[in-house]
Amino acid sequence: MVGGVPYGVKLLSVVLVAAIAIFMLVPLMVVIGSSVSASEFLVFPPRGLSLRWYGEVLQSDAYLSAAKTSVQLALVTVVVSVAIGTSAAIALTMFRFPGGSFLSALFLSPLILPSLIFAIGLLMVFSAYADGPSFTGLVVGHVVITLPYVIRTVSAALADMDPHLDEASRMMGASWWQRYLLVILPQCRTGMAAGAFFVFNISFDDAVVALFMRAPDVETLPMRIYSSLEFSPDPSVAAVSTIMIGITIVLVLVLNRVFGLARIM
């Protein structure tokens, strides 16, 4: 309906989109802007320009060890979530079996059930049946909240696949491991990669599960940021947040370039 839109409506659309764009982006802009402030306090607009807060972040043991924990957590979550999710997605998309659509809904349910409630439940279980929250507990929590994304991206990749490829490989004499190694997994590749990007991003950014599953010796970047926001934030929080925004932008751009965001969202 691009043609035939009244001129006034077009103008209004542009104004509306611009307003929403500012609204959506301004929190990120403000964080980035505050990070280069020379002042001791968090103010916007920044007073004076300086990169000193980035220097502070890069020399702060607390931030560096939180960053290390966050990256480790995200990477382990990626490996576990992609492995389990790909396997489940293959079962759910390539095979027809009783209860299949029920199981599909089950696997996607962490997407719509609030992660807060799930995080409390997990905390209670880990406190009662293990030695309280831990790095492992965080991995478990993050795998649950990221599993639906892997299942969605891998299923989308498999939906594009010629449904007879697997049968064709059987007709040509492929054994079960040859079918998976040579035919099915290569078809899942793009979906697995897209899923991995999502999983990394979600795990790296999550604060809800992390705050509930807070173990004494495990602190991730979002937990660290949340704590400083509760007390007295200085521009170093803005600097570390800006670095995280940068990582997200890179991930989103790669996702868009390689898979097309419109297709996988």
Binding site: M161, D162, L165, M172, A174
Partner: peptide, 27 residues
């Protein structure tokens, strides 16, 4: 099927998109 010595050409052809023509035929 893999032990029958019977070949099937699918309606959709079912060519492996990640393999060249040569690799497909060698499969």
């Amino acid at each position: 099927p893999e032990r029958r010595d019977i070949a099937l050409m699918f309606q959709s052809y079912a060519l492996m998109p990640h393999m060249t023509v040569f690799e497909n035929v060698r499969f």
